[in-house]
Simulated assay, not measured.
Amino acid sequence: MALQEMFPAVANSPATELSAAITDIQTTITLLDASKLPDAPNIATIGVDESAETIKYTGKSGNTLTGVTRGFNGTVAKAWATGVGV
């Protein structure tokens, strides 16, 4: 059986916002403050409730997440507006 990839937990779920709108296929995502998210590789959630999208990112450069896999872990990749919570 293959080992499952695990990500460290972050207490109190620190959050930031999208600093620009994104498409459903975009693989770089710019945030207001990427320092709020754990170092890469890791996962994050865009949006809330049943409509949220989980992403996996392999790098952070300033406030930009890079190497983003959209619709990670069975969620649906979608376009998001500026200011949506991450």
Rank of each mutant, 00 (worst) to 15 (best):
A20M: 11
A20V: 15
A20D: 13
A21M: 09
I22F: 05
T23F: 04
D24L: 02
D24C: 04
I25H: 09
Q26F: 02
Q26A: 03
Q26W: 01
T27Q: 07
T28N: 15
T28P: 07
I29H: 03
T30E: 15
T30A: 15
T30C: 12
L31K: 12
L32T: 14
L32A: 13
L32W: 11
D33G: 12
D33C: 02
S35Q: 13
S35C: 10
K36N: 09
K36W: 07
L37W: 03
P38A: 14
P38W: 05
D39P: 12
D39R: 05
D39F: 07
D39C: 06
A40K: 06
A40G: 06
A40L: 07
P41G: 10
P41Q: 08
N42I: 00
I43Y: 04
I43F: 08
A44Q: 03
A44V: 08
A44F: 13
A44L: 07
A44T: 11
T45C: 05
T45I: 15
T45K: 11
T45N: 06
I46G: 10
I46S: 10
G47T: 08
G47A: 11
V48Q: 12
V48E: 08
D49I: 03
E50F: 07
E50W: 10
E50H: 06
E50N: 11
S51T: 13
S51H: 10
A52P: 06
E53W: 04
E53D: 10
E53C: 14
T54N: 11
I55F: 00
I55T: 04
K56W: 02
Y57V: 08
Y57K: 11
T58Y: 08
T58A: 15
G59C: 02
G59L: 07
G59F: 05
K60A: 00
K60Q: 08
K60Y: 09
S61D: 15
G62C: 09
N63M: 11
N63F: 09
N63R: 04
N63Y: 07
N63C: 04
T64P: 05
T64L: 02
L65I: 06
L65K: 01
T66M: 05
G67W: 00
V68M: 00
V68K: 00
V68L: 00
T69L: 08
T69F: 04
T69E: 12
R70S: 04
R70M: 01
R70W: 02
R70Y: 01
R70E: 00
G71P: 00
G71E: 08
F72G: 01
F72M: 02
N73T: 04
G74Q: 03
T75V: 04
T75I: 01
T75L: 02
V76W: 03
V76H: 05
V76N: 07
V76C: 01
A77T: 07
A77D: 09
A77V: 02
A77Y: 03
K78H: 09
K78Q: 14
K78R: 13
A79P: 05
W80P: 10
W80H: 08
W80I: 13
A81I: 09
A81W: 05
A81N: 15
A81M: 13
A81E: 15
T82F: 05
T82R: 12
